[in-house]
Amino acid sequence: MSPAVQGLLTIAVAVTVCVGYFYSSNLLLDRVLFPAKGPNAGRNINVANAIRPWLFLFPAFAALALYLAYPVFESLRLSLFDRSQGNAFVGLDNYQRMIAEPKFREALGNNFLWLLIVPAASTAFGLLIAQLTDRLSWGSIAKSLIFMPMAISFVGASVIWKLVYEARPATVEQTGVLNALYVFFTDNNPLAWLTIPGWNSFLLMVVLIWIQTGFAMVILSAALRGIPEETVEAAIVDGANPFQIFFKIKVPQITSTIVVVWTTITITVLKVFDIVFAMTNGQWNTQVLANYMFDKLFRANDWGVGSAAAMVIMLLVTPILVWNVISVKRDYR
């Protein structure tokens, strides 16, 4: 059976089963188990209404529990066991082995750089572009073009930027933009940028900044529009210059949105895998945690250390997770 047909069948089966489940379980509840008639009609309606939410919730939350909640605990467990020793409990051995590896320390160090630079740069560029295009007649076209990389896969973006960083021998014409400019302005020999430690991590970050700026811009642009006009008008009347208006009036009013954008990009950074995988595969000092983990899990087949690395990523996400949960409790009460 061709996969496409299988796909269509799966959609049909999934839709039927899903709708069938909700429809028949409701019917069962209302007509058979707790019918809204007879001597206990009132009580039955109440019981049925107390059960119904769980019918609606069950499939989604079962999937969530299995596909996202359980793996957190299973990864934690795997990180404490060693497969090569017959699944023996080894305590923190995997973590110790991991920390002793130079490649892990390199990945951790790089990840901190990524965490510092990418969210900051994306948010700053996003804010700048949002402000500049705010009252521009052709602003929406400009924003649309800057937003476009959001639709491009990390892999596609890697190919796009590899062409930018392309290095050709010094004797022939450069086909990568970066080297063409570099040779033109400095008259030095072209460099293989992606193999130069220090520069290369930064150039990989540029790819993610390029993608994420559009996201930051869209959110911040909406936030800027939401600022009450009176505050800006009042500042103008008081003689504030455009920079003062931007930094002292507008930015303070959208701080919470800036934090949201920043944290969202932070999470994306922690998960970034494809860009490093496709462009350098962690060579030349560009390793990051997500790619290190993939290496351990699927190349070295070392589930213990791989899971330990996954737990490190989880640990780095946890503060944001806790903060989000707290703000839900505050907002929805």
């Binding site: 996202l68 990864s75 997500a290 983990m293 899990l297 996954a310 737990m311 989880m314 996400v317 997770l321």
Partner: peptide, 21 residues
């Protein structure tokens, strides 16, 4: 409320953790 909070918490769980399990 607890379920909503759970959904928000799971929003940020890296899917990397789910691969092997």
């Amino acid at each position: 409320l607890i379920l909503i909070a759970a959904v928000v918490a799971l929003l940020v769980v890296p899917l990397q953790l789910a691969l092997i399990p």
